[in-house]
């Protein structure tokens, strides 16, 4: 299971510290292993009881099946979640993070991730105030997790300093 190794007890980011302390990285790893070699996705919800993971179905394969020219990738290299379900959850609970796994590659924020996280016209965040967590899964095991946050200066999601952890 995901037992992150770090050099200090806390990172430079309080949200990431709460994520690590909550244990949800293990839940995401378990989801990623179960859905391997597809990318897993979902959201983290934070309330008075702490942070919990809410897994979503990765709909990418269904979209690829009905329209492979438009949705060229499969779930092996892409994720696509039910945004109506997300909106319903956001109307009632505090969604702080959207997460997904990268399969057999590192936990970087890819060009495809950037393109999906900002509006195409103005590069404003699609979901303001929500960070993105990427977790890498190699051979059904988590290797690293990184948190990304929108920068109004660069108009891109940037790695939050001090939030990387490795299993």
């Amino acid at each position: 299971m995901f037992q992150p190794s770090r050099t200090s007890e806390t990172t430079m980011d309080s949200l990431f510290d709460r994520i690590v302390a909550s244990g949800v990285l293990r839940d995401i790893e378990a989801q990623g292993a179960a859905e391997y070699p597809s990318e897993a996705c979902g959201v983290l919800v934070e309330d008075a009881d702490g942070i919990v993971a809410v897994p979503f179905e990765n709909m990418q394969d269904k979209l690829h099946a009905i329209d492979p020219e438009r949705f060229t990738r499969t779930s092996r290299t892409a994720y696509n979640l039910n945004s109506l379900k997300l909106e319903r959850i956001r109307s009632e609970r505090n969604v702080c993070v959207i997460y997904h796994s990268h399969v057999e590659c590192d936990a970087y924020f890819s060009d495809e991730d950037q393109a999906g996280a900002v509006t195409p016209d103005t590069s404003e965040p699609v979901i303001p105030g929500v960070d993105y967590l990427v977790i890498s899964i190699y051979d059904r095991k988590a290797r690293e997790a990184n948190l990304y946050r929108y920068s109004s200066q660069s108009k891109r999601y940037e790695h939050v300093d001090g939030t990387e952890i490795e299993a």
Partner: peptide, 10 residues
């Protein structure tokens, strides 16, 4: 009808 931004990535 609900118009909602897509949430997707790679």
């Amino acid at each position: 009808i609900s118009i909602i931004p897509a949430i997707a990535g790679g």
